[in-house]
Write a protein that binds this DNA or RNA. Structure first.
Lengths: 152, 152
DNA sequence: TTGTTAATGAAAATCATTTCCATTAAGGAG
DNA sequence: CTCCTTAATGGAAATGATTTTCATTAACAA
């Protein structure tokens, strides 16, 4: 049995086909980079790491892949406050977590404490909102903003 | 007694002074534009409306004011998916609300249904997180992503 | 009223992201 | 396995939101 956090090429192949897209070397590389990090990388940082695996990949492909994965709900684009987008796999090895974002230095802390109750409430809320607004909810983003330990 | 959602110049004057800043005509104009809309405006849209109130204001000042208010926690910058930032007053006439964001058309729906329980849980979570991570929490952002009624 | 210095506007610079376009390759059909 | 359609690609150029620069103005404490 395959661990759900260690999805192989096959699973992704299926996901892309499900929306009329193809699985390619470039896409596989970007996904692998995202799977192998615990950080919130920018497109450029992803590109640099991707080049080490697959020297032929272009920055444009990285952007296009992130865009597509984002639309598919497989990747979250975070706005950390600096002007580059930052990306993380929706269903990463880190497991479900939310963010503390420092508005001084733009650092992001992942947390997964106290999260069980949150998730329960979110599930209920999702259900109610889906019905009321006739909106298909795929994912959510929860962030707390403030000043981190260092910046205080 | 003054309604808390209808803060006058004085209140803002105090807030700016509290962080060593000055209250100026430009800042007042930007705040007024934000107070008078129920939409999630981009910097450029805010600039256009601000010009109607105060024809001398520059786009640069709009950006700088939004940046400052954002750092102060008085304004939230939303990432709607298109590449411009969108802004809303943290404590607006709309009252506390969260967002449904359509990943197809980038539209944003405000909702304030079912929110009381959410807020209660958030308050508790904030308290716990503040302690554990020694992080001063000023505000939060909750968004659900999916496909809206129109795009289905 | 004055002095200090934060704030401003306009123009130029920056730089993340997107578009263009000729070329390549995924993967279904045969 | 080979062919064919067309999605995907890479590099260069374009785009456009945001930031920086710098000389000038104005907030406000003394």
């Amino acid at each position: 049995m395959q661990d759900k956090n260690c999805q192989g090429r096959g699973q992704w192949h299926g996901k892309f086909h499900g929306c009329g897209c193809r699985m390619t070397a470039g896409r596989e590389t970007v996904i692998r980079v995202l799977q192998e990090t615990s950080k919130h990388l920018s497109a450029d940082e992803i590109f640099i790491r991707a080049r080490k695996i697959n020297p032929d990949i272009g920055l444009t492909t990285v952007y296009r892949t992130l865009e597509k994965l984002s639309t598919m709900g497989e990747v979250h684009r975070l706005d950390s406050g600096d002007k580059r987008g930052r990306f993380e796999l929706a269903d990463s090895e880190k497991g479900h977590h939310h963010h503390l974002v420092c508005t001084m230095c733009n650092s992001i802390i992942d947390y997964d404490d106290f999260i069980d109750e949150e998730i329960k409430l979110l599930k209920e809320t999702e259900k109610k909102l889906s019905q009321k607004y006739n909106f298909n909810i795929n994912s959510h983003l929860i962030q707390f903003y403030g000043i981190c330990e260092k910046c205080k």
